[in-house]
Design a protein around this nucleic acid. Structure first.
Lengths: 245, 245
DNA sequence: CAAGGCGCTATCGTCCGACAATCCGTCTGA
DNA sequence: TCAGACGGATTGTCGGACGATAGCGCCTTG
């Protein structure tokens, strides 16, 4: 009895070979990939085959083309790409706003609580910057939203945990549309957001872990209230628009 | 002053067009994609170009080929694929075992606490099954590990939150190697795991949210102790082996 | 000597066409 | 009715071609 042997097409073997090199750091971040022609001779396959392999690597973000450039360079799939991938998957699963909100409500307060202990002065400065950008420039909903997300990111960064940062990213992206609706539709939202952010900032400054957790939690609960006020159903599926990247 | 206009290559436009159809459910899960030739005539481009687009879709898991079959079918990128993508990204960021552990320690207890309220009888049965499989079949480290992961998944499923489930997946995958090391290296690990799992199961049965959280938390803290006993540094980078899928 | 313009070459994007392997549906014969 | 043979359809890979343009060195000009 033999195990079912898998024959993988050449393009997959190629992309795997290159991926391996990247993962083992033989090909390093920022380094340009060899030419298609070169790869094709090195591997002894046709250029079309190489190109198919490259498309695979490109679409998972292991190689990218800098704007207006020809050569592919090795990259690490950044937060944006992950958010894209995960977001798309979640939206295809018909995940609801509630589920995303719950997850955010789980991650962010914990991150804040952690961060209260570890936060550095630089972290604090970043949060403060985001906070002020929000207070100073929140007339336009879109800009307000950008600053809100920045605040979340800055707070989460204090946790010093890159896994959390990465986890957060798709959540924010998925919340974005409804959040925008909410901010646009609820007059008092901006004030409440400002208050909550200030409290969180204060808690982090004071290294008060519990206060940080609590205020972040309240902040998010406020979102929920905002949703109700703006008549946004939490049971609706998350929106998703394919980003061109 | 004009915005910098992006010209996207044809293969990207193609893959985006198809992706859009999938996301808007015009092409549904399980449905076979048109033939390469057909796509090529429909879009009015050469088959090579179509193939490059297909590779993109394939590598993000929006289309897959069932084993031993030729035609591509539309699929949703499942948990495994997401775990793969996120895991790879995290490992490229040189994330440490500690960070992953922390994240797990954040997600799982919360999921358990949530689950204690929502869990159904079926959920419970699934957990119990995983629990018994572990007690009955944990001699081999690998099998023990599989059952442990199944337990985590079953518990997290009780939360009824697919975002959490998806979030959990890469964490488990990243923990796997060190976890195996730990289970193999610490004699008393199996007993302690059994105990913790039983307590968690009991808490969920009793719908005791706080007990569920606490025991899941202890369970994970035990992992940490186990790591120390097995002399596994939490500061080491997570391991990653490219899975062929 | 520095900055900007010019042209060449390498490289990418796309196409045409071909052919073997093999999957799939159909037809045949027992 | 079912196993197996058969042929068409589809994918994987290849060889080659050609236009567009990014990259780079060279040259001019101030």
């Amino acid at each position: 009895m033999f195990p079912p042997l898998r024959v993988e097409p050449t393009y997959r073997k190629l992309s795997l070979a290159i991926e391996t090199r990247i993962l083992e750091r033989t090909l390093r971040d920022g380094e340009p990939l060899p030419t298609e022609a070169e790869l094709s001779t090195q591997f002894g396959v046709h250029r079309s085959t190489v190109r198919e392999a490259l498309r695979e690597l490109e679409s998972v973000g292991l190689v990218t083309r800098r704007r207006g450039t020809k050569r592919l360079v090795v990259t690490r799939p950044g937060a944006a790409r992950i958010a894209d991938t995960v977001g798309r998957a979640l939206s295809l699963e018909d995940v609801t706003v509630l589920e995303v909100w719950e997850s955010l409500h789980l991650v962010a307060p914990a991150a804040a609580a952690n961060g209260a202990r570890r936060r550095t002065a630089a972290d604090l400065a970043a949060i403060e910057a985001a906070y002020h950008r929000f207070t100073d420039d929140s007339a336009d909903t879109n800009r307000a939203l950008i600053h809100m997300l920045a605040f979340f990111r800055a707070v989460t960064r204090t946790s010093g945990n890159r896994v959390l940062m990465l986890t957060l990213e798709p959540l924010l992206k998925l919340m974005e549309p409804t959040l925008a609706q909410m901010v646009a539709g609820v007059p008092q939202a901006r004030t409440r957001i400002t208050t909550a952010q200030r409290r969180i900032l204060e808690a982090l400054t004071a290294r008060d872990s519990e206060a940080a957790r609590t205020w972040m939690s309240r902040y998010l609960r406020d979102f929920r209230r905002g949703y109700e006020l703006a008549n946004i159903s939490l049971d609706q599926r998350v929106a998703w628009r394919s980003s061109t990247r």
